[in-house]
Design a protein around this nucleic acid. Structure first.
Length: 329
DNA sequence: TATATTGTTACACC
DNA sequence: TGGTGTAACAATAT
């Protein structure tokens, strides 16, 4: 379940590995998972079967300049669009006129998306599967697998696989100079690890929702970006606040503790390269280590690491939340 | 075969 | 109007 720390882990790794690599080819096996923004190609919102070629055509030859993150979205910035081919090539496609300027790929992993990078020289066959790195921490993965939906090949022989068991994730091409207007990006709240995430702003945003349960408010991307089920549970444990507490009942001091623990827990998780819960693995196929430090998430029925009380779970807003009934008030 | 799963959006209601 | 709550949706494993 990639949340902010998992996405940041992938971004850090891909930014190193993909920087200045040129795209040689793009294979799309699940057309519904790629989109072209309406501002890139007019009159096209979603790429359908016959339009996959446009998606790959727009990408081939481009270099990846950098990989960034906003909330849980990855942003691949590409080198500028090459000059248009001759008039006759575009004559039949007047309505699908390409606009100039740089493109970016927005990628969302949703529940089960994975990016796996394979350097040609690291591929080693082991009984039909491939171990990507020489480490006991790496599970065997088959590449491509039946859940590989998009494959990028680069001119240096390396490959990037986009896997997603549930197919909830997507890749979306948008114009770079209008990226701030993309709705997915413009409506997110502050980045919790940036300077913009100041106490006063957080306090105001939370207090605007007095009837909301604190866990739901923390997971609202408009209040603060990037926090999902795992980290809302963990943050509230460290802040000693039950997830079902109404905002109106939370004392300023408690909210201050939540604010501080948002940054503390997320930073620790990034250091541990994320939590390998569900399908999350790193771009080299290895697991993140944050799961070892979970105090409540996924531990319902087990004993609290602090006081020994059995961890409970409850549905909050249709989601499962876990907490220690003794440590959290 | 029914259910659980999650991030995000849509929408009805107050 | 905007906060609130609920449903819907994507697709699959179990």
């Amino acid at each position: 379940m990639p949340e902010l720390p998992e996405v940041q882990t992938i971004v850090n790794e891909l930014n190193k590995k993909l920087k200045n690599k040129a795209i040689k080819s793009v294979f799309v096996n699940a057309p519904k998972m790629v989109q072209i923004g309406p501002d890139v190609v007019s009159n096209v919102r979603k790429v359908k079967n016959g339009q996959v070629k446009k998606f790959s055509d727009l990408l081939i030859g481009k270099k990846i300049l950098s990989v960034k993150r906003r909330a849980k979205l990855l942003i691949f910035d590409l080198s500028p669009t090459s000059p248009q081919p001759s008039h006759k090539a575009s004559a039949g496609n007047a309505r699908l006129r390409r606009t100039s300027g740089s493109l970016s790929i927005l990628a969302h992993l949703k529940m089960t998306g994975q990016f796996i990078f394979e350097d040609k020289k690291l591929r080693q066959k082991t009984g039909g599967k491939y171990r990507l790195i020489n480490s006991s921490n790496a599970p065997l993965v088959q590449l491509p697998s039946k859940h590989t939906h998009v494959i990028f090949k680069f001119t240096d022989g390396s490959t990037l696989y986009f896997n997603d068991v549930r197919k909830f994730g997507y890749l979306k091409l948008v114009r770079d100079n209008e990226i701030d207007q993309v709705r997915e990006l413009s409506e997110y709240g502050p980045e919790p690890l940036n300077k913009e995430f100041i106490w006063g702003r957080f306090f105001t945003a939370v207090k605007k929702r007095p009837k909301g349960k604190i866990k739901q408010v923390l997971m609202d991307p408009k209040v603060v970006a990037g926090i999902g089920n795992i980290y809302s549970d963990e943050i509230l444990f460290h802040a000693k606040v039950r997830p079902d507490r109404k905002v109106s009942s939370i004392k300023n001091q408690e909210l201050r503790g939540i604010y501080q623990n948002i940054q503390k827990v997320l930073k620790q998780a990034i250091k541990a390269k994320g939590s390998s819960v569900g399908d999350f693995i790193r771009t080299d196929g290895s697991w993140g280590q944050m799961g070892k430090f979970h105090f409540v998430y996924g531990r319902a029925g087990e004993k609290c690491k602090v006081c020994g009380t059995v961890i409970q779970s409850m549905k909050i807003g249709g989601r499962t939340g876990s907490f220690c009934p003794k440590c959290q008030k």
